[in-house]
């Protein structure tokens, strides 16, 4: 005796045009059409519900009817790859980039990117932060070789649209109407509360270099190559005011923490 045919069951589940698999029956032995549809509906409705919870701002912007119809298309094209539903929907921003019915809202994919980044930050590992003054204790001659450990929840979203203003306008009472223009957002959850703030438009590349482990010297040099007017002090101050520093190490030095 073999195991049941879950391949045929799965295929029929995701494609309503397919007949009910052989051997799936009503109590009287007849093919269980309506009953099989319960599973078909459950799968799509459950995934759509997961996206509703994951992208509330996108849903508010496009309306419930549009969102739910769009989500039903998305869940068939991008079913979850594993059971961790708290992070389901990662490809929705890219999906929206290429979804013609949403083309009149060019900022929508970036709002989705912001919502997904918030969710990643919400579920990121915990880590104890240290006072930004610890960086000040690094001897000046070693600053170039300093590697900043940043909080694992730190996320950056850069957009050609006022993505943070749009998010606030849709979520916060009395928030100003968004003005056209690019925005970059830093999201961090150093303790349990998640914060978002606008950062300079040339900050994301610099912060990404630091996140990937570049020394302060290397990240600053790369930033100066992109823009000769790059102000390291300004950017560091902005970054550290988000309380997202968890460690300072000096490359090539065994003793990891600087004095002080």
């Amino acid at each position: 005796m073999t195991l049941p045919d879950q391949t045929a069951f799965t295929a029929a589940l995701l494609d309503p045009a397919q007949p009910v698999p052989d051997g799936i029956v009503n109590p009287d032995g007849s093919p269980a059409r309506r009953r099989f549809d319960v599973y078909r509906n459950n799968v799509v409705a459950g995934l759509v519900e997961a996206l509703q919870a994951a992208y509330p701002t996108v849903r508010r912007i496009v309306g419930e009817k549009f969102f739910d119809a769009m989500a039903a298309v998305y869940v068939r094209a991008h079913p979850p790859t594993d059971p961790l539903m708290i992070l389901y929907g990662a490809e929705l921003p890219a999906f929206l980039d290429g979804f013609p019915p949403a083309a009149s809202l060019p900022y929508l994919p970036d709002v989705a990117r912001l919502e997904y980044a918030r969710r990643q930050a919400y579920h990121a590992p915990d880590a104890a932060t240290i006072q930004p003054e610890r960086l000040g204790a690094v001897p000046p001659e070693e600053l170039d070789r300093a590697v900043l450990g940043l909080h694992p929840s730190l996320r950056i979203v850069a957009s050609d649209h006022p993505v943070l203003s749009i998010w606030r306008f849709n979520n916060e009472e009395g928030a100003a109407k968004p003005e056209p223009g690019a925005e970059a957002v830093l999201i961090c959850r150093p303790d349990l509360s998640l914060s978002m703030r606008a950062i300079p438009l040339d900050a994301p590349a610099f912060i990404a270099d630091l996140q990937s482990g570049a020394t302060l010297g290397a990240a600053a040099a790369a930033a100066s190559t992109r823009d000769a007017g790059f102000d390291l002090g300004l950017h560091l101050g902005g970054l550290l005011s988000s309380n997202c520093l968890v460690s300072v190490t000096i490359e090539g030095v065994d003793d990891h923490d600087p004095p002080g």
């Binding site: 799965t10 589940l13 995701l14 599973y39 079913p79 979850p80 790859t81 539903m85």
Partner: peptide, 13 residues
């Protein structure tokens, strides 16, 4: 299933 997670509790014979 091989195609991924179906997010429902599906039946067995």
């Amino acid at each position: 299933h091989e195609t991924g997670f179906l997010n429902d509790l599906l039946p067995l014979p």
